[in-house]
Design a protein around this nucleic acid. Structure first.
Length: 885
RNA sequence: GGAAGCAUAGCUCAGUUGGGAGAGCGUCUGCCUUACAAGCAGAGGGUCGGGGGUUCGAGCCCCUCUGCUUCCACCA
């Protein structure tokens, strides 16, 4: 072991040691119960960010815990081809290198894309390894690898044959930057400062008469094919059926009646543009209106836009408003906030557009997916996220799965160029094959690829070999826990659930563990554009992976967002240092022992000290609490529990106590303490290991009582005998009296190197105990303890500290003056008096006495006795002091 | 327009079956006590956002108000 904690010097080696010993691998032939998690696959464009770090730290904690609890644990890692995100990045890179994507062509582009994956796809894997992730890397999957691709084709074919995938012309959201259709989930909504333009639409029969229309999107006027009013609206009843001379065009459009229109909103008259608005599309369908598309796929006005053709949609808007104004048709402009949809990748405002796309029919798939959660087959933690999930599924529309991209799984549909006959086949059909229907045309594969989330939806079983019936599937499916952020419940979780239920006839996992976001110090979301991101790799480099992991979990409530604070990572690094130094102490304390020293507790139990028995009991308690909380996935609570136990209970109390017997003359007692010290420390390392794997393994390799090759296979829940009586005694006598003496010392400003004398007097029954406790009290309070047979010591020479269990006499020579002592006693008196009154009042309360549990009543009764005695003793002491004055 | 979350010490946050509020950091005091100054010991600091209710008893359950945050949503 190094002299100081330097994580950099050992973390890499430790990780290599784990991998060499295949400690992360899962075996499908094992008869141990399985525990399975699939990693949310990071994008191949990705660099490790705080979200990944948190997500994978939580998974690693569970994986290591379950492994140590004897489960055959599979944590299956992988990467996602991230169709749209990657294509955007590669295109950017190409453009930067002066290469035109179109000229490169589809084949050439795909070559570049796979090159990208070779180059960057593993970058994030290495970063996850630095974090300490104990994944089965031999099973690493990639959404575009052979098997996942096979699964995608299989799934597509099955759904198509069941009529659950169809192709049709629908209104979809179009990104004019990425040049592809998007699903509803891929559209984000942003609040924008917008305007509402009031425009006069003149009637054909009388140009001086008009109907007023309000719109947030004037540029779509050119695509209007009607104006709609509510059929019951008296203002407009007589106009229904009449024609309007559509401004800026020479077209005439009808005034129609539709219930959709709210007479109370705006002017009560709505322009209808079926090609550029989802609602208008619906109305248009109902009324068989013509659909005129006035924009191209890049968001520019097209040839149908007359004078405006070629202009960007927002420039056209400005110009058209000007033109309307000069025609006298613009009534007014109101400013108002409106929500616009933007592409989740590039934040470009999406354009609603009618186009021919592939869809997954959702109604049938949604049912079992909602049932599974409602029945409790799948549980969210925290539970409140179930509502979000269910709400989304209840309101879901068909899922647009085709993307006008090249990087991804190409849709396995072949369409005849003459008759449009469509063949869907998971087997590749040679391009140019004759159409079997019309035998005139040839079959051409649909050029589109699938939504990247289509392959992610299959992840829990495609990674295990589906559609083949593999041993992995048999052993590890269904999985157990899925750990993910609340931001991808829709994209991913819901789709995995219905896919699993459809294709595997079984849920993909039984628990969805949701975590929050890691925000910056001010609570802002970290983002590239805001430039407030913190690089996890820099943190690992500076503090080590363990401190970093611990800071991400310590005290964090499940599902809650957290801020990343530098003070916190500091304190976690300090904690690592504490663990490290405690290890050094254990090594020094046990280095003199023979090589064949028996470290089992049984060999030494006869010689355990009161402190030994106390710490063993405390360890047993903590061990129980840890497992209980981890089974409920409460990692934040477990981390703080272990933090407190290690630092406060073990280091500050037990290690200091252990010095008494270890440095004592009784060799059997010393060795008993050494055995307990080594045992408890080893179990602390074991309990901490899932959280801070590196440091615990590193020290485990050094300690004299290790039982396994690696801490990863150490016994997490060792059997420990509890000693209730000694534990109570240690706390009631040693801790209590030491605290009193320390307070006294601090109040009297007596420096620690002044080991003043203290005489302890206890009632006869307590003599034995006080004698046993005295060496510990003396050590912990830095005093010279001695036993007194009498309670009547000269108050001229001694001041007394009274406690229920014992009275402590301190020679006055040790302190400065009586006045301060009097103050101290008076304070104590006030406190005792207060406690007494509280307890008395409680027992006077009839309701309390009648209904409170017995234990509480006894507790209050005991308090009264205790504080009455204490009060009297203090009063006595004060009296004596005042007499002396 | 729906829904959810948060409000607890100067700061950041824990507090899961309702039984006298905790941690870390910061502040103040004293210490280089032979594992650790990235440390040890001690101290100060909170009518748990406001109001009402249920209960013998509420930070925790119910109602209401205020402030902040987030998600969902096709009102021109």
């Amino acid at each position: 072991m190094n002299k100081t904690y330097e994580p950099k010097t050992f973390e890499k080696d430790i990780y290599a040691f784990w991998q060499e010993n295949k400690l992360f691998n899962a075996y499908n032939k094992s008869d141990k119960p399985s525990f399975t998690m699939v990693m949310p696959p990071p994008n191949i464009t990705g660099q490790l960010h705080m979200g990944h770090a948190l997500n994978n730290t939580l998974q690693d904690i569970l994986a290591r815990y379950k492994r140590m609890m004897g489960h055959e644990t599979l944590w299956l890692p992988g990467t996602d081809h991230a169709s749209i995100a990657t294509e955007v990045k590669i295109t950017e890179e190409l453009t930067a290198n002066g290469i035109d994507k179109k000229q490169l062509g589809r084949e050439g582009f795909l070559v570049k894309a796979f090159e990208w994956n070779d180059k960057y796809g593993n970058r994030i894997v290495e970063q996850l390894q630095q974090l300490g992730s104990s994944c089965d890397w031999d099973r690493k999957a990639f959404t575009m690898d052979e098997n996942c691709s096979k699964a995608v084709l299989e799934a597509f074919e099955i759904l198509y044959n069941k009529g659950l995938i169809y192709r049709g012309e629908r209104m979809i959201s179009w990104c004019s930057e990425c040049l592809t259709a998007l699903s509803d989930a891929e559209v984000e909504h942003q609040e924008n400062d917008g305007s509402l333009w009031y425009i006069k639409y003149p009637l054909v029969e009388d140009a001086y008469k008009y109907i007023m229309v309000a719109t947030t999107r004037p540029e779509t006027i050119l695509g209007d094919t009607a104006v709609a009013v509510n059929p019951t609206d008296k203002r407009y009843k007589s106009l229904i059926g009449k024609m309007i001379a559509l401004p800026l065009t020479n077209r005439q459009i009808p005034i129609i009646a539709d219930d959709y229109v709210d007479a109370k909103f705006g002017t009560g008259a709505v322009k209808i543009t079926p090609s550029h608005d989802p609602n208008d599309f619906e109305i248009g369908s109902r009324h068989s209106l013509e659909r005129i598309e006035v924009m191209d796929n890049r968001g520019k006005m097209n040839e149908k836009a007359g004078d405006y053709s070629g202009l960007d949609r927002f420039i056209a808007r400005k110009k058209m408003v000007e033109d309307l104004n000069s025609l006298g048709l613009l009534e007014k402009i109101e400013t108002r906030n409106n929500n616009v949809g933007v592409c989740y990748r590039c934040k470009t405002i999406v354009e609603p557009r009618v186009s021919l796309q592939w869809f997954v029919k959702m109604t049938e798939l949604v049912k079992p997916a909602t049932e599974a959660v409602k029945k409790g087959d799948i549980k969210f933690s925290p539970k409140r996220f179930e509502k979000i999930y269910l709400h989304w599924l209840n309101n879901i529309k068909d899922w647009c799965i085709s993307r006008q991209l090249w990087w991804g799984h190409r849709i396995p549909a072949y369409i005849c160029d003459k008759c449009g006959f469509t063949v869907v086949s998971k087997e590749q059909i040679t391009e140019g094959a004759k159409c079997i229907k019309c035998s005139n045309g040839i079959l051409i594969q649909d050029p589109d690829v699938l939504d990247t989330w289509f392959s992610s939806a299959l992840w829990p079983f495609s990674t295990l070999g589906w559609p083949n019936k593999t041993a992995d599937l048999a052993k590890f499916y269904p999985g157990d826990v899925l750990v993910t952020g609340y931001d991808i419940i829709f994209f991913w979780v819901a789709r995995m659930v219905f896919s699993g239920l459809k294709f595997m006839k079984a849920k993909p996992f039984s628990t969805v563990l949701i975590h929050g976001l890691v925000r910056d110090e001010k609570g802002q979301k970290m983002s590239k554009s805001a430039g407030n991101g913190i690089d996890p790799l820099e943190i690992i480099d500076k503090y080590g992976a363990d401190a970093f992991r611990f800071s991400l979990t310590l005290g964090i409530a499940t599902g809650a967002d957290q801020r990343f604070l530098s003070e916190k990572i500091d304190s976690c690094r300090n904690f690592m240092n504490k663990i490290y130094n405690a290890g050094k102490f254990v090594l020094v304390a046990t280095e003199s022992l023979d090589k064949d020293f028996d470290f089992t507790l049984e060999a030494h139990s006869k010689h355990f000290s009161i402190a030994d028995k106390w710490i063993l009991t405390k360890l047993a308690e903590v061990q129980k609490q840890v497992s209980k909380a981890l089974d409920k996935f409460e990692t934040g609570q477990v981390a703080s529990l272990l933090y407190d136990f290690t630092w406060d209970t073990f280091c500050d109390w037990y290690i200091e106590s252990s010095k008494v017997t270890i440095n004592g003359t009784d060799i059997q007692k010393a060795n008993a303490t050494r055995a307990v010290l080594a045992f408890v420390y080893r179990q602390i390392l074991t309990l901490l290991h899932p959280f801070v794997p590196y440091i615990t393994e590193y020290i485990y390799q050094e300690i004299p009582n290790k039982t396994t090759n690696s801490i990863m296979t150490a016994n997490y829940n060792a059997k420990i005998k509890s000693y209730k009586k000694e534990t109570n005694n240690y706390e009631a006598v040693i801790i209590k009296l030491v605290n009193s003496l320390r307070q006294f010392r601090a109040n009297e400003k007596i420096p620690p190197n002044n080991h003043f004398e203290v005489l302890f007097y206890s009632h006869p029954n307590g003599e034995k105990l006080i004698k046993e406790a005295m060496p510990f009290i003396s050590k912990l309070a830095s005093v010279k303890g001695a036993f007194s047979t009498t309670s009547s010591l000269d108050s001229q020479k001694y001041i007394q500290i009274v406690d229920v269990f014992a009275t402590m006499f301190i020679p006055k020579s040790a302190i400065k003056n009586d006045a301060e002592e009097l103050e101290r006693l008076k304070k104590e008196f006030v406190y005792a008096q207060k406690e007494l009154i509280l307890a008395e009042n409680k027992l006077k309360n009839e309701g309390f006495v009648a209904k409170a549990p017995k234990a509480l009543l006894e507790l209050e009764q005991a308090k009264i006795e205790k504080y009455t005695a204490l009060r009297d003793k203090i009063l006595d002491a004060i009296g004596q002091l005042e007499v002396n004055k």
